[in-house]
Every structure is written in structure tokens, then in C-alpha cells.
Simulated assay, not measured.
Amino acid sequence: MEALNKNGMVLIGCGRMGSALLAAWLDTGLAHEAVTVVEPYPSDWLKEQAAKGLRLNADIPANPAVLILATKPQMMKEVMGQIEGDFADTLFISVAAGTPISFFEAELGADAKIVRVMPNTPALLKKGVSALVANKAAQGAPLAAAQDLMTAVGVVEILTDEEDIHAVIGLSGSGPAYVFAFVEALVAAGKDAGLEEDLAFRLARDTLVGAAAMIGDNFAEVATLRENVTSPGGTTAAALKVFAESEPNLNALVSAVVKASKDRSIELAEMA
């Protein structure tokens, strides 16, 4: 944080994700006085940070250490048109889905240091997963700096091919919504089976949290965990048989879901 506190950070867009990132960085030693935030609709929390010294909707300082773009993709063209000045040493970090690095290079120049980040919403609890990919100018120390920043809100994966970001969006970017949808489906199934909604919700939630906690670092062990719950001819075996024999089966359905998100990400990138 020393370089950031010395040379400053600019955050353009401070909605849920921008606020989660900023809160984590402030918690890890980023000085309020070093931060400039541009946000037309500031939350009460952001106004509180301004009262502590954060610069809210002030002029963007020259050559900040980092400039984070956390606006909606459809606003990015307008936002980039408003960024003027000396950014020779600035690391640009974009958390906008669907906006490729080539767009930023066209706006800022090929020599600009650009890192594209795809976080997900558990970052709000510092339990997110973020995938990073950098252009040629941002390899090495700039990419490492971006990795350090994103580690404040969870785990980080480094990509070497920007095209992989679309699959990441389909899997982990949109993934929390799939989990939430599955919980909703479990609760509905519990109600159909005769349980009260509140009880069905607690059972579904706590089962999911507990099962997730059992997963370690080795993917091969996941199959063992599943098998340990599945007695031959038992209740779980009967349930998993439905997953396997449905049309489409569980694997095919999840693959189609991830592909739909990935394909939409590609479409948005082509529109940028």
C-alpha cells in the first residue's frame, strides 16, 4: 500500500463491487486521503469515507499509481472519454465484464498498463475468486500489484490468454447465481416434500455450507466425498440416479448453463 498511499488511487464507479474492493483496501492500510472516487450516486457509506478524508467526485489527479474502472460496461465509452491527463506510470485495472483489453488499448494506447479482472460477488465477504489477465505492458510488477490488490477480497487466479476470461465469467463470475438458484430449488423441493419453508431453507443453506467446507484442494477427492455419502441401493443413490438419467442430465445441463453465460460474454465483448 506504500506506493498507493504515496501516488494515489482513483476508483471510477463505486457500486457494490467497487465498494467491496475499496472497503477491503482501506482495511489493509490504504489511506483515505490517497483515494479519489468518481461516483455520481454515492452511497451513505461512501459519503462517510469522504468525511474521513477520501476525495469524492474531485478532479482526477495526474499519474496516480492505480486507476480502477468499476463502471457498467455500457458506460465505459463515455467514462474513457472523460479520462485525460498524464497516466504514463498508472496501472489501469478494469472490473467491467464484457470490455476487452483491446478497447482500453485503443483508448489509452498500446503502452498503457492494463489488467482485466473478473471477480465475483463473494468478494463482498472477502471470500471471492478473481481471475486476472494483463496486456503486454502490464506483465511483471504491474500484474503482481494487481494480484496483491485483489487478494484482499479472496483468492486470485492468473490467466495467460484473455479469451479464457469468457469461460471464467461463465463458471465463477456467474457461478454464485447458480448456487443461489440451486438453494431456491432445494427449498422448493423441501416444501413439496412436506417441510415448512423456513426449515427447508435452513436445511438447504447449512447443508450447502457444510458440504462446501469439506472440499479440499484436490479435485479427485470430490468424487470420493460423493461416494462416501452414497450407499449402494440407498436414498442418495436413488437421488443421484435422477441426476444421471434426466434429459439433459446434470452434467449436460450445467455445461449448457456455463456455455450460455460464456457466449453472452463473448457477445458483449464484440459490442464494446
Score class of each variant (00 low, 15 high):
residue 110 A to M: 13
residue 110 A to I: 09
residue 110 A to L: 03
residue 112 A to F: 13
residue 114 I to N: 15
residue 114 I to L: 12
residue 116 R to A: 13
residue 117 V to A: 14
residue 117 V to I: 10
residue 117 V to S: 15
residue 118 M to D: 10
residue 120 N to C: 00
residue 121 T to N: 00
residue 121 T to K: 00
residue 123 A to Y: 03
residue 124 L to S: 09
residue 124 L to M: 13
residue 125 L to D: 02
residue 127 K to Y: 02
residue 127 K to M: 07
residue 128 G to T: 04
residue 128 G to I: 04
residue 129 V to F: 08
residue 130 S to T: 13
residue 131 A to D: 09
residue 132 L to R: 14
residue 133 V to E: 13
residue 134 A to P: 04
residue 134 A to R: 08
residue 136 K to I: 12
residue 137 A to G: 09
residue 139 Q to P: 02
residue 139 Q to R: 14
residue 140 G to R: 09
residue 141 A to E: 15
residue 142 P to T: 08
residue 142 P to H: 06
residue 145 A to F: 10
residue 146 A to M: 05
residue 146 A to K: 07
residue 147 Q to M: 13
residue 149 L to F: 02
residue 150 M to F: 15
residue 151 T to N: 00
residue 151 T to H: 09
residue 152 A to W: 00
residue 153 V to M: 14
residue 154 G to E: 05
residue 155 V to P: 02
residue 156 V to P: 06
residue 156 V to A: 04
residue 157 E to F: 11
residue 158 I to F: 01
residue 158 I to E: 13
residue 158 I to R: 11
residue 159 L to D: 14
residue 159 L to S: 06
residue 159 L to K: 12
residue 162 E to V: 04
residue 164 D to P: 01
residue 164 D to A: 11
residue 165 I to F: 13
residue 165 I to D: 11
residue 165 I to N: 08
residue 165 I to M: 15
residue 167 A to F: 08
residue 169 I to V: 11
residue 169 I to N: 03
residue 169 I to R: 04
residue 169 I to C: 08
residue 170 G to Y: 04
residue 172 S to H: 00
residue 173 G to A: 10
residue 175 G to A: 01
residue 176 P to H: 03
residue 177 A to R: 03
residue 178 Y to N: 02
residue 178 Y to C: 05
residue 180 F to R: 06
residue 183 V to A: 08
residue 184 E to H: 05
residue 185 A to S: 12
residue 185 A to T: 06
residue 185 A to Q: 00
residue 185 A to R: 01
residue 186 L to M: 14
residue 186 L to V: 00
residue 189 A to E: 01
residue 189 A to F: 03
residue 191 K to Y: 00
residue 192 D to R: 11
residue 192 D to Q: 05
residue 192 D to M: 09
residue 192 D to I: 08
residue 194 G to V: 09
residue 194 G to I: 00
residue 195 L to T: 02
residue 195 L to M: 15
residue 196 E to T: 05
residue 196 E to D: 06
residue 196 E to Q: 08
residue 197 E to D: 09
residue 197 E to C: 04
residue 197 E to G: 03
residue 201 F to D: 06
residue 202 R to C: 01
residue 202 R to G: 06
residue 203 L to C: 11
residue 204 A to N: 03
residue 205 R to G: 00
residue 206 D to K: 12
residue 208 L to V: 15
residue 208 L to S: 04
residue 209 V to G: 03
residue 209 V to D: 02
residue 210 G to N: 06
residue 211 A to F: 06
residue 211 A to W: 02
residue 211 A to R: 02
residue 212 A to E: 04
residue 213 A to I: 03
residue 214 M to V: 07
residue 216 G to A: 05
residue 217 D to F: 10
residue 217 D to A: 14
residue 218 N to S: 11
residue 219 F to P: 15
residue 220 A to L: 04
residue 220 A to E: 15
residue 220 A to G: 07
residue 221 E to D: 14
residue 221 E to N: 11
residue 221 E to P: 01
residue 223 A to H: 08
residue 223 A to I: 05
residue 224 T to Q: 09
residue 225 L to H: 03
residue 226 R to P: 09
